[in-house]
Design a binder for these strands. Structure first.
Length: 1110
RNA sequence: GGGCCUAUAGCUCAGUCGGUUAGAGCGCUUCCCUGAUAAGGAAGAGGUCACUGGUUCGAAUCCAGUUAGGCCCA
């Protein structure tokens, strides 16, 4: 009996709506998939199927049989959304598939735990806003709050992931906050340092002087009102070039002028030198340089039409030197030159930009390029420090006023000038309204400021990164040399430190006295213990590399000969923590605590075989994995990568909780199920890099197109296998021995499907695999099962041998199919496969081997032709208004190899309801018979290269009929001679035919002719079939089971009566009537509830009464 | 402002090496079929392959530019 494993599902999966046709011994006609899925999930849980699927497969020597999958760790301080589910499904499908292909695939779940989001959440929960308050609260307590916030939703995550049927190991997971993980991370830092690939420098960031902390760009976008309108003073200052002119620069941050290091110009911008008097000093004529496009903006100071003395481009200006506006950094190496920069525009200002290096991101890039060392005379409180002694202790914004006063005084040659240099001129001061960033916490205006940071010198090995990228397979392909490749080519050094609290520590200890410099870098607990005499331990006495415990490790500076009493300097850790991306990029080795453990394993499992994340990770995880892999191991970190697109809400916008523009995840699980969602996401273009709009109808579509057909086939099988031999049932077996053409076709088609599917899965082409599956299911249900139905209840001939073959074939097909697509629909296939075979789990089996199935491509092609014949014939019936139940005498099929279709003639005859299917070779068909003619088709692909332009003439000739064939077989079209292979001659038929027949072309060549003559005899049989149909409907309406025997009464006109007499056997057999009577008088049956009325034949009325017997 | 991607039926998307009649699913209209299927079949309507120019005997396809949208960077 099927299902062979009734306990596979818990409870009764049948829906209440399904009581009419009756469940087939426990297999419901229309299952409630979510409930079915929960049953399977419970079974896996209790059976330990997941672990068994791994244990089943040997790892091989040095893990040669392992497929290595890296889980990109999510940050779990929120609940999972569709994006997580999407990657989760891919992260499940690929390992499941590889497992069934014989590989051992360990899957460890990973958690990303460090970083700013955790800190912000902890600050919010504790109602604090500044880093000072964190220190006040205590770093230990604060970090404890971070730790609990990032692990807050792990339980929910586990539930979601389990519900989506993703098999992943939560017991043996990795967390970036584990001491072992962090030890590997500092090992990586130290290794990079030993290779000379990390250095300390400045990083320019938005900086809040009030909270005394740099902000991330992420924080800049925190609120819409971070950018507020603000009035600032703007000054235009002339700086004295070595060639004598005054280069005019414009800035809205006068306070950066004391730190000026260079002037930037646009290479292709046109500049002019003009002569004009100095404002407030009319006798003093100077030569000024500014962009020609900006002349008009300075008409007030320079005159409407100033005398242009010289014109030159930015490129010509570059290289000149000048005297800085203030004298603090006079003599600074490489500084005070005119340099070119791409971002200089002439939309405002003067077309010359002053740069102070460490007070702007672009500025920093340019000064780095020019080897100008940044200066930083502004302290962490935003106040000036040495050597800018004139404004010492003043907040930079407050210093704007005295700075401008000093410039003005120097220009006029009177009053206090501070440290303004000789010859510097203030041309204009104005007030400027602009959108300016403010701190999202304290609302004070931010400044851009260089802060100390450690960098990975990516630029040193980026060429190697580009080379190693060639070894990676990307999906979609264009990522390789596009988004990712371009990013690599333009890679900059990576700032890896953050002046924060919750993260892996920067393992660098520095002397606290510059007089006795020393730097120590540590890469393990052991090294720390060696130098400090103890390990960093937390309050519970456990090894812990987090702050503040690691900061407690302090020791005297060995390079300082003084004694502690003499004030010996101490080695103290730099207080920064590492960028969280350093954590996640370290995941391949850190998750196994390499190199402290698992050295051998790691060496043989790196690079990983496969990763998947969304396309934005080309700048994130994909990138940091690649940087660290290249720098540390000179290998790529992964061999193959899918970067998928973005999941959008139903309105095409980003998913947003407030807009409620996407269906709730749990609602979908509860209503449609995890396999339905899996199918929806996996069959979509999102895995090719496109975007995806999540809609409820889209999800249900997959259920209707794939899951229901698959299930219905299984239901059909179980229904009739169990009903076999009067209910005794038939134990179908795995067999490919059937000689029936439909069976052979199905198995050959199945083989081709499995081959195709595996090719797609091997390429991780999941979307195409889904499409192939959908196409095959269509063949299975809408051709094979539909055309084979009567064989399944034909238990008469040869002791039911016909039915047995059909059952065995369908069993075999379902068994192979469920194994083939088990990764794509793991829950549904599990239920079916277990019901079918009684085995433990489809996921413990091997993927199907195509060679177990018969190969017969010719048969597949022929059957597909037969299907085309049926389709064309149906179209003719429709055009001639001849219903399919009305039998016709003949359908003639004329094709090139008609004999090959002989085997399928009965199938076609039955499908299109004709008495006879005549087959005729095209070569022997007489033109006169059907009004056929020949048509010339030019093969442009073949003829084009030889004929060139002439081919168009030949094509026009073939279409207009201007072509000929000589008796010798020479073909000419449009006057152009064609040679063998450049043309084909096809037989065509007039598309209409005359009154007694209808003709139609077949898509692959050939045509069909349908005899449309309706004789009285055919008319009568058609009527009888109408009656059968009406009786079947009556059976259904009466709620009878398909195998119930009935007593049948039919009444109607004389025409109806005669049909029941002539076709009594047909009616009785088709409707399982063991008692039958009919009468030539409609009213012989009264019009009552249990009597059905029907219109049959050409408008004849009939009454039908059906009664169950026994 | 820069880089990358996308633009094909009402909707969502395929479209191989450039080959002359551009496909699928969904939706719509009409008809048909139904002893598994909340189904199925057929026909029909629906296309300036975003636009402009170029290369070519021939362009949805290759090239350049334009427009619109998306992602990332600035």
């Amino acid at each position: 009996m099927f299902p062979a494993q009734p306990e596979a599902t818990s409870g009764d999966p049948a829906t209440p709506a399904n009581d009419a046709p009756g469940a087939a011994f426990g297999v419901p006609a229309s299952p409630h998939f979510p409930k079915l899925e929960e049953g399977v999930l419970a079974y896996w849980q209790q059976d330990g199927t997941f672990q068994a699927s791994i244990d089943n497969r040997p790892a091989g020597d040095h893990g040669s049989n392992e497929f290595v999958f890296y889980d990109g760790p999510p940050f779990a301080n929120g609940l999972p959304h569709y994006g997580h589910l999407l990657t989760g499904y891919v992260k499940d499908i690929v390992p499941r598939y590889e497992t069934m292909r014989g590989k051992r695939v360990e899957r460890r779940f990973g958690w990303d735990t460090h970083g700013l989001p955790a800190e912000l959440e902890a600050m919010r929960l504790n109602g604090i806003k500044t880093t000072d308050e964190i220190v006040e609260m205590g770093i230990a307590e604060f970090n404890e709050a971070c730790r609990s916030s990032v692990l807050k939703y792990t339980k929910e995550w586990q539930e979601y992931v389990t519900r989506q049927a993703r098999w992943v190991d939560f017991e043996n997971d990795y967390k970036t906050l584990n001491p072992d993980y962090m030890e590997s991370v500092i090992w990586a830092f130290k290794t990079l340092h030993d290779k000379g690939l990390v250095y300390e420098g400045f990083r320019v960031l938005p900086y809040c002087w009030n909270d005394e902390t740099p902000l991330s760009n992420h924080e800049l976008r925190m609120d819409d009102d971070v950018y507020q309108s603000r009035q600032d003073p703007a000054v235009t200052v002339g700086l004295r070039l070595n060639t004598g002119e005054l280069a005019l620069v414009w800035t809205t941050t006068p306070w950066t002028l004391p730190s000026n290091l260079a002037i930037m110009v646009g290479e292709d911008i046109d500049y002019v030198v003009i002569e004009a008097p100095v404002p407030g000093n009319p006798e003093r004529i100077e030569r000024f340089i500014l962009a020609e496009a900006r002349l008009g903006a300075y008409a007030r100071e320079l005159g409407d039409e100033p005398v242009v003395v010289e014109r030159l481009t930015g490129a010509q200006l570059a290289g000149r030197t000048y005297t800085p506006p203030f004298s603090y950094y006079l003599g600074h190496e490489n500084a005070f030159r005119v340099v070119t920069a791409e971002f200089v525009t002439t939309t405002d200002g003067t077309g010359l930009v002053h740069t102070a290096g460490a007070f702007g991101e672009d500025d920093k890039v340019v000064t780095d390029r020019e080897n100008i060392e940044a200066v930083m005379p502004v302290g962490k409180d935003g106040k000036f420090t040495a050597p800018v002694n004139d404004y010492l202790g003043q907040l930079v914004f407050d210093a704007n006023a005295p700075i401008m006063e000093h410039l003005k005084a120097a220009t006029r040659g009177e009053g206090e000038t501070g440290s303004v240099t000789e010859g510097t001129v203030l041309l204009r001061r104005e007030t400027y309204d602009h959108s300016y960033p403010h701190c999202w916490r304290c609302r004070q205006p931010l400044i851009y400021k260089g802060v100390s940071s450690w960098f990975v010198a990516v630029t040193q090995f980026k060429d190697r990164m580009v080379e190693l990228n060639e070894q990676i397979t990307w999906t979609p392909e264009h990522i390789k040399h596009g988004q990712f490749g371009k990013w690599l080519e333009n890679a900059r050094d990576w700032s890896i430190t953050r002046n924060r609290f919750w993260g892996s520590p920067v393992p660098v200890w520095k002397s606290d006295d510059e007089a006795y410099p020393r730097i120590d870098v540590y890469g393990s607990f052991e090294e720390l213990e060696r130098d400090f005499g103890r390990l960093p331990v937390n309050a519970d006495g456990e090894r812990d590399l987090h702050r503040p415990y690691v900061d407690d490790l302090v020791r005297p500076n060995p390079d300082d000969p003084r004694t502690p009493e003499e004030g010996q300097s101490m080695m103290r850790r730099v207080t920064d923590v590492l960028d969280v991306w350093f954590d996640s990029g370290s995941m391949p080795y850190a998750q196994v605590h390499y190199p402290f453990e698992n050295r051998d394993w790691f060496e043989n499992h790196y690079p990983g075989d496969f990763i998947v994340e969304y396309i934005g990770q080309t700048r994130g995880w994909f990138y940091t994995l690649h940087v660290l892999a290249t720098a540390l191991f000179d290998r790529p970190a992964f061999k193959s990568c899918i970067s998928h697109g973005i999941v959008l809400g139903s309105d095409g916008q980003k998913m947003s909780k407030s807009l409620r523009n996407y269906p709730d995840v749990n609602e979908v699980f509860d209503r449609d199920g995890a396999d339905a969602m899996r199918w929806f996401l996996m069959a979509s273009p999102i895995l090719r890099g496109g975007n995806l709009i999540v809609t409820e109808p889209g999800i249900r579509d997959g259920v209707r197109q794939v899951m229901l057909p698959l299930w219905s086939t299984w239901y059909f099988f179980s229904l009739y296998a169990n009903a076999f031999d009067g209910g005794a049932g038939y134990e179908a077996k795995w067999s490919t021995a059937s000689t029936d053409p439909l069976d052979r076709y199905l198995l050959a088609k199945l083989r081709e499907f499995v081959t195709e599917l595996q090719g797609q899965m091997d390429r991780f082409d999941i979307a195409d695999a889904c499409e192939s599956t959908r196409t095959f299911l269509d063949v299975l249900t809408n051709w094979y099962v539909r055309r084979s139905r009567d064989r399944f209840w034909d238990t008469s001939a040869q002791d039911g041998a016909v039915a047995r073959q059909a059952f065995d074939t369908l069993y075999t097909c379902l068994e192979v199919l469920t194994r083939a697509i088990a990764p794509l629909l793991p829950l549904t296939t599990e239920e079916i496969w277990r019901g079918l075979t009684g085995g433990r789990s489809v996921h413990l089996t091997d993927a199907p081997d195509p060679s177990d199935l018969p190969q017969d491509h010719a048969l597949v092609v022929q059957m597909d032709t037969a299907r085309a014949v049926c389709s064309a014939a149906s179209s003719l019936r429709k055009a001639n208004k001849l219903r399919v139940r009305l039998p016709l005498s003949d359908l003639t099929v004329v094709t090139d190899d008609a004999a090959a279709l002989q085997e399928f003639a009965p199938i076609v005859a039955d499908e299109v309801n004709v008495r006879q299917v005549s087959l005729q070779d095209a070569s022997t068909a007489q033109a006169a018979d059907y009004g056929i003619s020949q048509q010339l088709v030019v093969n442009a692909r073949a003829a084009g290269p030889r004929l060139g332009k002439e081919v168009q003439v030949a094509i026009r000739g073939s279409k207009s009929g201007d072509w000929s064939v000589t008796p010798d077989g020479d073909v000419t079209s449009g006057g152009i001679a064609l040679v063998e292979g450049e043309y084909t001659l096809e037989t065509v038929v007039a598309q209409d035919g005359d009154g007694s027949r209808a003709t139609a072309m077949l898509p692959g060549g050939g045509f069909i002719v349908l005899d449309t003559t309706v004789t009285p005899e055919l008319e009568q049989e058609g009527l009888a079939r109408d009656l059968v149909r009406a009786v079947q409907q009556a059976r259904r309406d009466a709620g009878l089971d398909v195998s119930d025997r009935i007593s049948l009464t039919i009444t109607g006109s004389a025409t109806v009566f005669e049909a029941t007499v002539t076709h009594r056997d047909l009616i009785v057999e088709e409707t399982l009537a063991t008692q039958f009577s009919s009468a030539p008088q409609l009213d012989a049956l009264p019009a009552r509830d249990d009597v059905a009325e029907a219109t049959v034949g050409e408008g004849e009325s009939a009454r039908i009464k059906v009664m169950k017997i026994g």
